[in-house]
Amino acid sequence: MGCFQSTSRKQFPGYEDPVQLSSQTAFSVSEVEALFELFKSISSSVIDDGLINKEELQLALFKNRKKENLFANRIFDLFDVKQKGVIDFGDFVRSLNVFHPNAPQEDKINFSFKLYDMDGTGYIERLEVKQMLIALLCESEMKLANETIEMILDKTFMEADVDQDGKIDKSEWHNFVARNPSLLKIMTLPYLRDITTTFPSFVFNSEVDEVAT
């Protein structure tokens, strides 16, 4: 099946065998191939080089490539596993795997910790959270006085920073998330269960003889 497509995948640096990617993730082979359809569409939206750059991810998230956003930048940096400034197909599948409904909760907690630990010190610091709150207010055009922001931070750190050293470590984050499970909602994408029906064209481009469901 799909022999006429067989050379096109060479245009995708970092392309990995769907069977292998499936064996390392919660995705079936068909789901990995459906994700490739999504990857092709995002990675060709600005520069057709088989890789996703920051502008392309922003465009996919906001339908507007000029809208620079701190959180989209964080997602990009975490998906750019090899820190090459671009996301290849293997990075894309492995990163999305954390968002699969069946992915281990532990992986979701660790990913969310890294998301908020912007400078990678191993702690979520008050200043980082304040920067993110300010970015959110800018993005959503919500208005809050500085003292209100400080009040929210006081309350949050009072609850999360158990040893009150001004920063949240990984174990404090685990406990905080356990008490506030809604914080992990963004870490699960129900869409990933239906990826083969969202991108049915994968069937025509499949390089696998028997498409597993």
């Binding site: 999504l38 998230l61 956003n69 997602i75 908020y116 993110m132 959110l136 959503s140 929210i152 809604s182």
Partner: peptide
């Protein structure tokens, strides 16, 4: 709009569009 101050900082942050990856799947 005024942000709901009863939410903790992370609840507020997680409402960002930049963290809403479901938009990747919307054609």
């Amino acid at each position: 709009p005024i942000a709901p101050v009863t939410m903790n900082a992370f609840e507020l942050i997680s409402t960002s569009q930049g963290l809403n990856l479901s938009s990747l799947f919307e054609k």
